[in-house]
């Protein structure tokens, strides 16, 4: 995935340390998506993906930072969202992206489901933490 992080400005951020913060983060993403001209179904998919990834970050990464921004690239506009934690990392990312795989008490749809709901998805994970970056284009 292209590195949109730098071009996506100005970015808004939410620190996620509680499940209430996950709600705040997804409301931020929704507001940006509405302003960014995403249709209702696209908005709903993006916010749902943000909810899954925000919860993952909290439960498995011990919390972190959600950063989101409007984006324009090659005549398209969209929303960029980044989830960065400093948790222990995901030992096997490919496995974690498999439907039904879960290390906790979820349904195992968090990562794989979120990936299906967005247009671009990138994950980097190691002992120093996990960063997931997603983009949803306004069609």
């Amino acid at each position: 995935m292209k590195d949109y992080g730098a071009s996506a400005t100005p970015a808004e951020t939410v620190q996620v340390a509680t499940s209430g913060d996950v709600v705040t983060a997804r409301q931020m993403v929704r507001t940006l998506a509405q302003r960014g001209g995403l249709g209702l179904v696209h908005q709903t998919k993006l916010v749902t993906a943000a909810s899954e990834l925000g919860r993952n970050m909290l439960v498995y990464g011990g919390g972190g930072v959600v950063r989101a921004a409007a984006l324009s690239d090659a005549g398209r506009s969209g929303i960029y969202v980044e989830f960065r934690d400093e948790g222990p990392g995901i030992p096997d990312v490919e496995l974690a992206l498999t439907d039904g795989w879960t290390s906790g008490n979820g349904m195992g749809l968090g990562l794989s489901g979120a990936r299906r709901l967005v247009d671009e998805f990138d994950i980097a994970s190691g002992p120093e933490g996990t960063t997931v970056r997603i983009v949803k284009w306004a069609r």
Binding site: T44, T48, L109, G113
Partner: peptide, 8 residues
Amino acid sequence: MTLVELGL
């Protein structure tokens, strides 16, 4: 629509 795509 989102739920179905999510796999639920």
